[in-house]
Design a protein around this nucleic acid. Structure first.
Length: 833
RNA sequence: GCCGGAGUGGCGGAAUAGGUAGACGCACAGGACUUAAAAUCCUGCGAGCUGUAAGGUUCGUGCCGGUUCGAUUCCGGCCUCCGGCACCA
């Protein structure tokens, strides 16, 4: 054993030792409870960055910790390998996306194996591997069979830079989630997954996700966006058509003074065909369509409208109200038509003011009275109904149901629930993805590829430069096929699937990655799923996590799985920042993990990342922090090295009598057990590795002082036993945190078996008890003194002692004691006047 | 605008069924060892006032107020920052 910690040597030695002994291989074992730890698999973009490192270190600590608690661990890793960057890099550097991707996978895998993250590499998967995407295509077919995959012509989000459509979830602030380019609208025929059919269940089952961060659940709730209300039919004057509107406020129906249509509403054409305002309306529609997505989404846009010349009839009072087009009415929410109630909706209020439309108050608050010509903003609170015919005098809160019932009776409306969630657009006009397994036959129409013909292989030899249409369309060998139904010539679908489809089920594949006859082995799935601990960045709070929940529910309905939610517990880690900003190439504040590992070692990096702060919070990377972490490891190393002799000697007796132990040693023993307790609780309950490490540091500091003392004072016979226990615990508690380091020390201490195989240490409650207690003495709530008393003292005795302190006597002299508060074993507060 | 989360020393952060604010670490300063440096070890380290010293004392957890013997923690009202959603009818 060297007198200083040679990390490069030790890390290499221990890495090889673990691999040689196959410690991280996982097998089904019904005798043991299972624990499935999963970190969100990465997109293989090249070298891993510090964010990856943080993610995998957290996962590794959890996996190793849970293993030591006797769980049978599944801890796999793979690659989310399809996607645009591969294609873009390929275009730029003229290498095939598959080569680029494979090279990157190799690079990232090298780093991860170097780090000795406890992955079972036999389970490695890559979504671009035909053995994998065969089953992604299979998933598509199951959804298709169930009517959950459909193709339709729709106005979609188009990124002009990536040359590809985007799902709603991939549009952020009107911009492409990947390249920040402003998204434009385009009408295209596209494949969708009917996630909206699961909206209610996706919302309801959020209640089951007790161990997910509240933040993520809130985001999902908002994204699903359920609102309850009514669908009300408005007849068009002079036409047999009615136009439905959706409203959450049927109670304000009497206040509807005009009617709004989205400029894209399909009925606009018909309504204006004999209108004198026809030309004006056409140019208005054109103007609105030119408004950029960003402006239209930003909410700061000026409200604009145009009268159609037609009238709608309010079904509740047969009042005729003018029909306008307005740019603030969205075609893809509700029905694309709105009853405008300016007195009780701020948007309608602004619009009415601008175009001088009537405002009619139908709900008055209890404490004041509004008048339509003096009110300065819409009143959207609850109150008493007025100007509402037979409903006058009803509280608005109660009138909701009453009015809906009345409309139902009249046949002009019904209850309705609306969701903000849209169907998931999954087709992409790009090369590097899983081909959609569909065939178009001029006779049979759209025919799914038979499951036995899967996979539909991605052709190798394709010009994949983006042209706005799928590159696969240029490959005749790919496109031309025969119809599986009639055997005639037919053409393949040339779009590929959104990569989020691939990643919506990968956690299932990890349970049996080599199964060839099915996407997963049912038996293995039953044992391993659901994922017990999922760890990743919060940026997937909606996208990936919502899609995966959707897939699981579909598979549940198809009886392929027996659980409704895939991830039992979710942990979202914070970002790694430097100089106050997230590390990014454009900011130039990237720290290369490989260089750090070479300079400081893997374990020091782990300690630094874990110690910098709670893992769910963004952390600040500092070089000084790295110095501190290596200093700590070296300090522990020296501590063990200085005392290694005790472990080499023949075995000491296991038990010692109290007389053989010095007072100082007793304190060390107490501290040791307190530390076990604290570290266990901090890891178990909230992943607060920073305080776990600080607790170990405290113990190390105390043992340092203690060993110096015993050297000089020669201690008592039993002290060696206590010292050894403390040292052993320091090493074992560091096991999951600094694995190479503690494995080496553990074996240097004479243990033959790996520290990885050791059970997690348990603390002894008896050892936590103190013989003396420190009592805080306050006067009027302010700290005025301290008192040490035997632990068995009761409140009365403690109070006496506190009051009789000379210092207290002096301070309360001449004052009146009003009362004395005693908090058992902790504090005395003397209240004086 | 709505919904979350957070504001604590020079810095990262501890401490909340209300009970010593600042654990642990970083930085800094002083000392020991050394020819010297590095490394290591020891000591100090929120601010002010006071004392030769030990100590004493006031202020201090974004701001203002409340409850309480006692508030970083609970309540009410603000301010700031971060994240999400955003003309969703």
């Amino acid at each position: 054993m060297e007198d200083r910690y040679n990390f490069s040597e030790v890390e290499k030695k221990r890495r090889e030792y673990w691999v040689k002994n196959n410690f991280f291989k996982s097998y089904v074992d019904y005798k043991k409870p299972k624990y499935y730890v999963l970190e969100m698999f990465p997109y293989p973009s090249g070298e891993p960055h510090m964010g990856h490192v943080k993610n995998y270190v957290i996962g590794d600590v959890v996996a190793r910790y849970k293993h030591s608690q006797g769980y049978n661990i599944l801890h796999p890793m793979g690659w989310d390998a399809f996607g645009l960057p591969a294609e873009n890099a390929a275009i730029k550097n003229k290498i095939h996306p598959s080569i680029w991707t494979k090279t990157n996978i190799q690079k990232m895998k090298n780093t991860l194996t170097n780090m000795s993250i406890s992955y079972d590499w036999d389970r490695e998967i890559a979504t671009c591997d035909p053995d994998y995407y065969k089953w992604t295509q299979w998933m598509f077919l199951q959804l298709y069979k169930k009517g959950l995959a459909y193709k339709k012509k729709a106005v979609v989000n188009w990124c002009p830079s990536c040359n590809v459509v985007l799902a709603n979830e991939q549009v952020i602030d009107g911009k492409c989630w990947r390249c920040d380019t402003e998204v434009v609208k385009k009408e295209l025929s596209q494949w969708f997954f009917k996630i909206t059919e699961y909206a209610q269940r996706l919302l309801d089952d959020i209640e089951c996700l007790e161990e997910w961060p509240e933040k993520v659940l809130t985001m999902q709730r908002n994204w699903i966006g359920r609102s309850e209300g009514a669908r009300i039919e408005f007849p068009i004057k002079g036409s047999d058509k009615t136009i439905p509107v959706f409203t959450t406020r049927p109670d304000t129906l009497y206040g509807a003074t005009y009617f709004l249509l989205s400029p894209e509403h399909p009925l606009v054409e018909e309504i204006i065909k004999d209108s004198p305002y026809k030309d004006k309306i056409k140019s208005f529609q054109e103007e609105v369509s030119k408004e950029s997505t960003i402006d239209r989404l930003s909410g700061v846009m000026e409200k604009m409208g145009c009268f159609t010349g037609k009238y709608a009839i309010n079904p509740i009072n047969n009042e005729e109200i003018p029909i306008w087009l307005a740019n603030y009415v969205l075609m893809d929410y509700g029905t694309g038509a709105v009853m405008a109630v300016p007195a009780h909706d701020q948007r309608d209020f602004e619009f009415a003011k601008k175009y001088d439309l009537p405002i009619r108050i139908v709900i008055q608050p209890k404490d004041k009275k509004f008048t339509s010509d003096t009110m300065e903003a819409a009143f959207d609170g609850e109150g008493i109904m007025v100007n509402s015919g037979r409903f006058d005098g009803l509280p608005s809160s109660k009138s909701l149901d009453v009015i809906i019932d009345y409309l139902i009776e009249k046949g002009s409306g019904e209850k309705e629930v609306n969701f903000r969630l849209r169907d998931w657009l999954i087709s992409r006009q790009r090369y590097w993805g899983a081909p959609i397994p569909m065939i178009y036959c001029s006779d049979c129409g759209m025919v799914p590829v038979p499951e036995s013909d899967l996979p539909v292989l991605l052709p190798e030899d394709v010009d994949f430069r983006p042209k706005g249409m799928s590159p696969l369309a240029s490959s005749k060998d790919f496109v031309n096929t025969i119809c599986p139904k009639c055997g005639k010539e037919a053409k393949r679908e040339t779009d590929t699937m959104d990569t989020f489809v691939c990643s919506s089920w990968y956690y299932l594949r990890f349970c049996s990655p080599k199964t060839v006859t099915a996407p997963f082995d049912a038996e293995e799935l039953r044992y391993w799923m659901p994922v017990d601990q999922y760890i990743g960045g919060v940026e997937h709070a909606i996208l990936h996590l919502l899609y995966s929940r959707f897939f699981t529910k579909v598979l549940y309905d198809l009886k392929y799985v027996n659980f409704k939610e895939p991830f039992k517990r979710l942990f979202t880690q914070g970002m790694v920042c430097k100089d106050g900003a997230a590390m990014s190439k454009s900011k130039g504040n990237i720290v290369n993990p490989g260089k750090i590992f070479l300079k400081f070692g893997i374990d020091a990096t782990r300690v630094m990342m874990l110690f910098a702060g709670p893992p769910e919070v963004d952390m600040e990377w500092t070089d000084k922090g790295m110095d501190g972490a290596s200093r700590f490891l070296n300090r522990v190393w020296r501590l063990i090295y200085n005392n290694i002799g005790y472990f080499k000697k023949p075995k000491n007796k296991e038990e010692v009598s109290p007389e053989d132990i010095s007072v100082e040693a007793k304190k060390i023993r107490q501290k040791t057990h307190q530390t076990i307790k604290k570290v266990t609780e901090n890891i178990e309950e909230r992943f607060h590795f920073n305080t776990a490490i600080s607790a170990i540091m405290e113990l190390v500091n105390e043992v340092y002082k203690f060993q110096l003392e015993t050297e000089e004072k020669q201690g008592k016979e039993g002290d060696v036993f206590i010292l050894k226990e403390a040292l052993e615990m320091i090493v074992r508690l560091l096991g999951p945190i600094a694995p190479h380091f503690s494995e080496e020390l553990w074996q240097e201490m004479g243990n033959k078996e790996s520290i990885y195989m050791q059970p997690w240490p348990k603390y002894d409650k008896k050892m936590l008890e103190e013989e003396e207690k420190l009592i805080i003495v306050q006067i009027n709530g302010k700290l005025r003194g301290k008192l040490t008393v035997p632990a068995f003292y009761d409140d009365e005795k403690i109070k006496e002692e506190a009051l009789s302190l000379p210092k207290m006597q002096e301070k309360i002299k001449g004052k009146k004691i009003i009362k004395v508060i005693v908090v058992s074993g902790k504090l005395v507060n003397i209240v004086v006047k």
